[in-house]
């Protein structure tokens, strides 16, 4: 079974409090913020590893971004993926989810074919959850998002999906795209030997010109129908008030505070 896993390099969520807004360019100032593999994508890699252990085959990780994203692809190789591809070109920069999914789908077509294409359900920075379904649409494949379990039977993927009030199980023909929920698995700890071997695994960087049939009018800023509007830093105006006295007195004070809200 050939599995592709789409990963995204995102600013380390542990450092979100250090990200600032450029007031002039309306962009995020990420200087000094380390990049990491998007957390949900790590669960997608773990899901791929479990599928490979069960059914055999290979795992390819793909991503799009500037050259430093190679670091996150190396991390994915250290986690157990077999090879990696990066689409890195100024022409694909500034892409919204539509242009991103188009470019990544072309990268997948170029490096495939694959039986299953996995991704995290959403990214920690954008959190739109658009890209997996859009990749499936570009490639004309079936897609399930928020997957909680995956197995393969009789050439079909059996996927349990999370809904708002429960779960449902679906049967998809292969190839298909599956976006995983973070609850699908526990990501295993990385083996040090695998880290050291990761540098010897194949990692190929493509430019836009290397991708066969890539329509350059559909990628990058030019291919993006959505653009950032005004961005503002959220201001926290919450104030913590310490209530003193006995438990009964404090409970009475809390009641007084919330009474007006209940009436409203």
């Amino acid at each position: 079974m050939k599995i592709a896993v789409c990963i995204k390099s995102v600013p380390d969520p542990d450092c979100y409090d250090k990200i600032t807004l450029d007031p002039v360019n309306k962009t995020l100032n990420r200087a000094g913020i380390p990049a990491v593999i998007n957390v949900a994508d790590k669960h997608a890699i773990e899901a791929a590893l479990q599928l490979k252990e069960e059914y055999g085959g290979s795992i390819t990780v793909v991503s799009m971004g500037p050259p430093p994203v190679e670091q996150q692809l190396r991390e994915a190789l250290a986690m157990g993926a077999d090879d990696a591809y990066l689409l890195s070109d100024r022409k694909v920069g500034g892409a919204d989810t539509l242009a991103t999914s188009y470019a990544v789908s072309k990268l997948i077509e170029q490096t495939g074919p694959y039986d299953i294409i996995l991704a995290g359900n959403e990214s920690a920075d954008g959190a739109t959850s658009h890209v997996p379904a859009q990749i499936a649409e570009w490639m004309g494949l079936g897609c399930i998002c928020s997957a909680l379990s995956i197995r393969v039977e009789d050439g079909k993927a059996i996927v349990t999906k999370k809904f708002e009030n429960g779960t449902g199980t679906f049967r998809l023909g292969l190839p298909c795209v599956i976006a995983v929920n973070q609850r699908i698995n526990k990501v295993r700890l990385t083996n040090m030997m695998a880290v050291l071997k990761a540098k010897k695994k194949p990692l190929t960087v493509f430019s836009a010109a290397d991708i066969t049939g890539l329509d350059e009018s559909r990628v990058g800023l030019a291919g993006s129908p959505t653009q950032n509007g005004e961005l503002h830093m959220a201001e926290s105006t919450k104030v913590c008030t310490m209530l003193e006295g006995t438990e009964e007195e404090a409970a009475a004070m809390i009641l007084e505070k919330i009474k007006p809200l209940l009436k409203a």
Partner: peptide
């Protein structure tokens, strides 16, 4: 790059 990954894994 390799040492960053070793440190992160540890």
């Amino acid at each position: 790059e390799e040492r960053q990954m070793i440190a992160a894994a540890a």
